[in-house]
Protein backbone atom coordinates (compact mmCIF):
# COMPACT_ATOMS: atom_id res chain seq x y z
CA UNK A 1 0.00 0.00 0.00
CA UNK A 2 1.36 3.39 -0.88
CA UNK A 3 0.62 6.03 1.75
CA UNK A 4 -2.93 6.37 0.47
CA UNK A 5 -3.51 2.89 -0.93
CA UNK A 6 -6.84 1.17 -0.44
CA UNK A 7 -7.35 -1.09 2.58
CA UNK A 8 -9.04 -3.46 0.14
CA UNK A 9 -5.58 -4.26 -1.21
CA UNK A 10 -4.71 -5.56 2.27
CA UNK A 11 -7.92 -7.47 3.04
CA UNK A 12 -8.21 -8.69 -0.50
CA UNK A 13 -8.29 -9.47 -3.29
CA UNK A 14 -10.85 -12.23 -3.31
CA UNK A 15 -8.88 -14.72 -5.36
CA UNK A 16 -8.18 -18.30 -6.33
CA UNK A 17 -5.37 -19.80 -4.22
CA UNK A 18 -2.78 -20.74 -3.34
CA UNK A 19 -0.55 -17.64 -3.39
CA UNK A 20 -1.34 -13.95 -3.69
CA UNK A 21 2.09 -13.08 -5.04
CA UNK A 22 2.55 -16.23 -7.15
CA UNK A 23 -1.02 -16.95 -8.30
CA UNK A 24 -3.13 -13.75 -8.10
CA UNK A 25 -0.06 -11.59 -8.83
CA UNK A 26 0.72 -13.79 -11.83
CA UNK A 27 -2.82 -13.42 -13.18
CA UNK A 28 -2.71 -9.63 -12.74
CA UNK A 29 0.73 -9.28 -14.35
CA UNK A 30 -0.37 -11.29 -17.35
CA UNK A 31 -3.58 -9.26 -17.59
CA UNK A 32 -1.42 -6.13 -17.64
CA UNK A 33 0.82 -7.62 -20.35
CA UNK A 34 -2.31 -8.53 -22.31
CA UNK A 35 -3.56 -4.93 -21.98
CA UNK A 36 -0.19 -3.58 -23.09
CA UNK A 37 -0.31 -5.83 -26.16
CA UNK A 38 -3.90 -4.70 -26.73
CA UNK A 39 -4.16 -7.10 -29.71
CA UNK A 40 -4.71 -10.82 -30.21
CA UNK A 41 -1.75 -12.84 -28.96
CA UNK A 42 -0.49 -15.91 -30.80
CA UNK A 43 2.40 -17.05 -28.66
CA UNK A 44 3.96 -16.28 -25.26
CA UNK A 45 7.19 -17.38 -23.69
CA UNK A 46 7.14 -16.80 -19.96
CA UNK A 47 10.68 -16.41 -18.65
CA UNK A 48 10.57 -16.86 -14.87
CA UNK A 49 13.12 -15.38 -12.49
CA UNK A 50 14.16 -16.03 -8.88
CA UNK A 51 11.32 -17.20 -6.63
CA UNK A 52 8.99 -17.45 -9.64
CA UNK A 53 11.52 -19.73 -11.33
CA UNK A 54 11.94 -21.96 -8.30
CA UNK A 55 8.37 -22.41 -7.14
CA UNK A 56 6.10 -21.67 -10.08
CA UNK A 57 4.57 -25.11 -10.44
CA UNK A 58 3.60 -25.53 -6.81
CA UNK A 59 2.04 -22.09 -6.60
CA UNK A 60 0.04 -22.31 -9.81
CA UNK A 61 2.06 -19.38 -11.21
CA UNK A 62 1.96 -21.12 -14.61
CA UNK A 63 -1.83 -21.48 -14.57
CA UNK A 64 -2.16 -17.90 -13.31
CA UNK A 65 0.03 -16.43 -16.05
CA UNK A 66 -1.86 -18.38 -18.66
CA UNK A 67 -5.21 -17.27 -17.18
CA UNK A 68 -4.18 -13.61 -17.32
CA UNK A 69 -3.00 -13.84 -20.92
CA UNK A 70 -6.36 -15.41 -21.78
CA UNK A 71 -8.21 -12.63 -19.91
CA UNK A 72 -9.49 -14.41 -16.78
CA UNK A 73 -9.75 -12.51 -13.48
CA UNK A 74 -8.02 -13.48 -10.19
CA UNK A 75 -11.25 -14.86 -8.78
CA UNK A 76 -12.25 -17.04 -11.71
CA UNK A 77 -12.75 -20.66 -10.67
CA UNK A 78 -11.47 -21.72 -14.10
CA UNK A 79 -7.85 -20.89 -13.10
CA UNK A 80 -7.57 -24.35 -11.59
CA UNK A 81 -8.16 -25.99 -14.97
CA UNK A 82 -6.31 -23.44 -17.06
CA UNK A 83 -4.09 -25.94 -18.93
CA UNK A 84 -7.26 -27.60 -20.25
CA UNK A 85 -8.83 -24.24 -21.09
CA UNK A 86 -5.70 -23.16 -22.96
CA UNK A 87 -5.84 -26.30 -25.08
CA UNK A 88 -9.11 -25.06 -26.49
CA UNK A 89 -7.46 -21.87 -27.78
CA UNK A 90 -4.81 -21.32 -30.45
CA UNK A 91 -2.37 -19.86 -27.95
CA UNK A 92 1.12 -21.36 -27.97
CA UNK A 93 3.03 -21.00 -24.73
CA UNK A 94 6.13 -22.11 -22.89
CA UNK A 95 7.49 -21.62 -19.37
CA UNK A 96 11.22 -21.10 -19.08
CA UNK A 97 12.73 -20.88 -15.59
CA UNK A 98 15.92 -18.79 -15.64
CA UNK A 99 18.40 -20.05 -13.07
CA UNK A 100 21.35 -17.64 -13.41
CA UNK A 101 22.05 -14.65 -11.13
CA UNK A 102 20.11 -11.59 -12.33
CA UNK A 103 19.31 -8.07 -11.16
CA UNK A 104 15.56 -8.61 -10.84
CA UNK A 105 13.41 -8.60 -7.67
CA UNK A 106 12.17 -11.95 -6.27
CA UNK A 107 9.02 -12.52 -8.32
CA UNK A 108 9.76 -11.48 -11.87
CA UNK A 109 8.49 -12.66 -15.23
CA UNK A 110 9.49 -11.62 -18.71
CA UNK A 111 6.74 -12.03 -21.31
CA UNK A 112 8.03 -12.58 -24.83
CA UNK A 113 4.87 -12.09 -26.82
CA UNK A 114 4.25 -12.77 -30.48
CA UNK A 115 1.09 -11.04 -31.66
CA UNK A 116 -1.28 -12.53 -34.20
CA UNK A 117 -0.07 -9.88 -36.69
CA UNK A 118 3.51 -11.14 -36.30
CA UNK A 119 4.77 -8.24 -34.16
CA UNK A 120 6.95 -9.01 -31.20
CA UNK A 121 6.63 -7.49 -27.72
CA UNK A 122 8.66 -7.91 -24.53
CA UNK A 123 7.21 -6.97 -21.15
CA UNK A 124 8.99 -7.36 -17.80
CA UNK A 125 6.86 -7.34 -14.65
CA UNK A 126 7.12 -7.95 -10.93
CA UNK A 127 4.76 -9.25 -8.27
CA UNK A 128 5.36 -7.47 -4.97
CA UNK A 129 2.93 -9.22 -2.60
CA UNK A 130 -0.77 -9.34 -1.84
CA UNK A 131 -1.57 -9.53 -5.57
CA UNK A 132 0.00 -6.15 -6.30
CA UNK A 133 2.20 -5.87 -9.39
CA UNK A 134 4.08 -3.45 -11.64
CA UNK A 135 5.63 -3.52 -15.08
CA UNK A 136 9.13 -2.03 -15.32
CA UNK A 137 9.91 -2.51 -18.98
CA UNK A 138 8.17 -2.60 -22.35
CA UNK A 139 10.55 -3.57 -25.17
CA UNK A 140 13.63 -1.38 -24.71
CA UNK A 141 11.75 1.23 -22.66
CA UNK A 142 11.78 1.61 -18.86
CA UNK A 143 8.34 2.29 -17.39
CA UNK A 144 6.55 2.05 -14.03
CA UNK A 145 3.08 0.76 -14.73
CA UNK A 146 0.79 -0.66 -12.06
CA UNK A 147 -2.46 -1.02 -13.95
CA UNK A 148 -4.38 1.09 -11.43
CA UNK A 149 -5.53 3.55 -14.10
CA UNK A 150 -6.04 3.40 -17.85
CA UNK A 151 -2.67 4.77 -18.94
CA UNK A 152 -1.29 6.24 -22.11
CA UNK A 153 2.41 5.46 -22.32
CA UNK A 154 4.40 7.22 -25.00
CA UNK A 155 7.96 7.69 -26.15
CA UNK A 156 8.82 10.67 -28.30
CA UNK A 157 11.52 13.05 -29.42
CA UNK A 158 11.64 15.81 -26.82
CA UNK A 159 10.59 19.19 -28.11
CA UNK A 160 8.54 22.19 -26.91
CA UNK A 161 4.78 21.88 -27.06
CA UNK A 162 4.53 18.07 -26.99
CA UNK A 163 2.65 17.85 -23.70
CA UNK A 164 0.21 20.48 -24.90
CA UNK A 165 -0.43 18.68 -28.19
CA UNK A 166 -1.16 15.39 -26.46
CA UNK A 167 -3.23 16.73 -23.57
CA UNK A 168 -5.29 18.77 -26.02
CA UNK A 169 -6.35 15.61 -27.85
CA UNK A 170 -7.27 14.02 -24.51
CA UNK A 171 -9.15 17.11 -23.31
CA UNK A 172 -11.20 17.24 -26.49
CA UNK A 173 -12.46 13.76 -25.63
CA UNK A 174 -13.48 15.16 -22.19
CA UNK A 175 -11.35 12.61 -20.38
CA UNK A 176 -9.85 13.63 -17.03
CA UNK A 177 -6.14 13.28 -16.46
CA UNK A 178 -5.44 11.75 -13.04
CA UNK A 179 -1.68 12.27 -13.26
CA UNK A 180 1.01 13.00 -15.81
CA UNK A 181 4.60 11.94 -15.52
CA UNK A 182 7.36 13.02 -17.90
CA UNK A 183 11.04 12.24 -18.07
CA UNK A 184 13.71 12.70 -20.70
CA UNK A 185 17.31 11.67 -21.07
CA UNK A 186 18.46 15.19 -22.00
CA UNK A 187 17.03 18.27 -23.68
CA UNK A 188 16.07 17.50 -27.27
CA UNK A 189 16.55 13.72 -26.92
CA UNK A 190 14.17 10.84 -26.31
CA UNK A 191 11.48 11.50 -23.73
CA UNK A 192 8.85 9.43 -21.98
CA UNK A 193 5.36 10.40 -20.89
CA UNK A 194 2.85 8.35 -18.88
CA UNK A 195 -0.62 9.81 -18.54
CA UNK A 196 -3.02 8.17 -16.09
CA UNK A 197 -6.60 8.75 -17.18
CA UNK A 198 -10.03 8.32 -15.64
CA UNK A 199 -11.10 6.23 -18.62
CA UNK A 200 -9.39 4.56 -21.56
CA UNK A 201 -8.65 6.81 -24.53
CA UNK A 202 -10.64 5.71 -27.62
CA UNK A 203 -8.69 4.33 -30.60
CA UNK A 204 -9.15 7.34 -32.98
CA UNK A 205 -7.50 9.66 -30.44
CA UNK A 206 -4.68 7.19 -29.86
CA UNK A 207 -4.18 7.13 -33.63
CA UNK A 208 -4.08 10.94 -33.72
CA UNK A 209 -1.36 10.92 -31.05
CA UNK A 210 0.58 8.22 -32.95
CA UNK A 211 0.50 10.44 -36.01
CA UNK A 212 2.33 13.32 -34.31
CA UNK A 213 5.69 13.22 -36.12
CA UNK A 214 7.87 13.31 -33.00
CA UNK A 215 6.10 10.33 -31.43
CA UNK A 216 7.92 6.99 -31.72
CA UNK A 217 5.66 4.64 -29.82
CA UNK A 218 2.34 4.73 -27.97
CA UNK A 219 0.84 2.10 -25.68
CA UNK A 220 -2.75 2.61 -24.64
CA UNK A 221 -3.01 0.36 -21.59
CA UNK A 222 -6.29 -0.34 -19.84
CA UNK A 223 -6.33 -0.79 -16.07
CA UNK A 224 -6.56 -4.23 -14.50
CA UNK A 225 -9.17 -5.09 -11.86
CA UNK A 226 -8.07 -5.16 -8.21
Amino acid sequence: MSSSGSLFNIMGPIMIGPSSSHTAGAVRLALLARNIANQPIRKVQFILYNSFAKTYRGHGTDRGLLAGILGYSVEDNAIRDMFKNAEQTDLEYQFIPYDQPNPFPPNTVKFEITLANGDFLTVIGHSIGGGQVYVSRINEYSVALKGEYPTLVMFYHDQPGMIWQVTKIIAEEQINIASLNCTRKAKGTEAFMAICLDSLLPEPQVKAIREITEVYTVYNVDKIPL
Binding site: I10, M11, G12, P13, M15, G17, S19, A24, G130
Partner: peptide
Protein backbone atom coordinates in the same frame (compact mmCIF):
# COMPACT_ATOMS: atom_id res chain seq x y z
CA UNK B 1 -6.95 -23.69 -5.68
CA UNK B 2 -10.36 -22.53 -4.54
CA UNK B 3 -11.62 -19.05 -3.73
CA UNK B 4 -10.24 -17.25 -0.66
CA UNK B 5 -9.64 -13.68 0.53
CA UNK B 6 -5.95 -12.72 0.62
CA UNK B 7 -5.51 -11.17 4.06
CA UNK B 8 -2.93 -9.74 3.71
CA UNK B 9 -1.76 -12.55 1.41
CA UNK B 10 -3.07 -15.97 0.43
Amino acid sequence: MRKIVACPTA
